[in-house]
């Protein structure tokens, strides 16, 4: 794998003698979307606040683009785009004035760049209206727009799909993919929507009680996949075809690969078995997450 853009090294935070974050190590790579998962109060937001300099770690280092956040704050943060919790904007200003306001705090953001981001986020129509009139979904888009203004190479998003409608979520997911793959941006997304994370992320880091308990790549499909066949009296037929199966009610759970599916169907049909349905299933992130965190409340 390539060099990490962001490195968290032995990060700890103690508040009032209570260890909120305990020795967290995490690397984030360009072009990779990392999901940050954890039950409520596990320390997701505290970690994110430390990465963007809103809170100071009790010990440990945060290196962004080779700059130590504590010592070279301005250099380190200049390449970071962030939404911490809800994208809170100035409600009495228009969307455009908000973007202009934040653009002035960076170097070299042109008017053209502002217009480009507005267009990418699909905000053209109401950009000159006050933010107080925006829906939650529009505020999310505006929040993302301000995070992308300065073309960051590291993007941190806390609950980004909150308030977006299904079409918006889909569009948003594709957009994140696009900037990760095309522009090589490292993205850290925290969310409680596990199914969402599964579709969006390349890898996930699970945090519980201030400790990272698991970091794993999310392999798409191939492994941990099985097919569910709904058919009547297929036991002997499957035996003859030498396919292992477990039977649950009228459903046969088969450990076969995608390539084997058409042959199987053809063979079963030839044997006169009535097939009602066959579908792919893989263990969901939710199942694994619940197993990992011991089924603690996830909100």
């Amino acid at each position: 794998m390539t060099e990490p853009i962001v490195q968290l090294k032995n990060l700890s935070k103690t508040i009032k003698n209570k260890k909120i974050i305990d020795n967290v190590n995490l690397d984030l790579y360009p072009g990779t979307i990392t999901g940050f998962l954890g039950p409520n109060g596990a320390g997701k937001t505290t970690t994110i606040r430390m990465i963007v300099g809103l809170m100071k770690p009790t010990s440990g280092d945060i290196i962004i683009n080779g700059h130590d956040l504590n010592r070279q704050y301005e250099e380190a943060i200049s390449q970071v785009g962030v939404i911490v919790e809800n994208p809170e904007m100035y409600k009495f200003l228009s969307g455009y004035k908000n973007l202009e306001h934040f653009a002035r705090m960076h170097k070299n953001i042109t008017k053209e760049r502002i217009d480009e981001v507005i267009q990418q986020m699909g905000l053209e129509n109401r950009i000159h209206e006050k933010v107080s009139t925006y829906s939650l979904g529009m505020r999310q888009r505006l929040g993302l727009a301000q995070a992308l203004l300065h073309r960051p190479n590291f993007l941190i998003l806390d609950e980004p799909t909150n308030g977006l409608d299904p079409a918006g979520i889909h569009e948003f997911r594709n957009y994140l993919r696009f900037i990760a793959e095309q522009e090589g941006v490292a993205i850290l997304v925290s969310s409680h929507l596990l199914a969402e994370m599964e579709l969006m992320c390349d890898r996930i880091a699970v945090i519980q009680a201030g400790k990272i308990i698991d970091i794993r790549e999310l392999q798409q499909q191939e492994t941990a996949t099985h097919y569910v066949l709904e058919a009547v009296d297929a036991d002997t037929a499957l035996h003859d075809l030498q396919i292992e199966f477990t039977k649950v009610n009228d459903q046969y759970i088969l450990a076969i690969t995608k390539q084997e599916v058409p042959t199987l169907i053809a063979n079963l049909v030839a044997k006169g078995i009535a097939i009602y349905s066959i579908s792919m299933q893989h263990t969901t992130l939710e199942d694994e997450f619940l197993a990992l965190t011991g089924g603690g409340a996830i909100v």
Partner: peptide, 14 residues
């Protein structure tokens, strides 16, 4: 109170 402090302080400005 507006929560905008988060947006304001995560900029390359001390």
């Amino acid at each position: 109170t507006q929560g905008t402090i988060k947006m304001l302080l995560t900029r390359p400005v001390s």
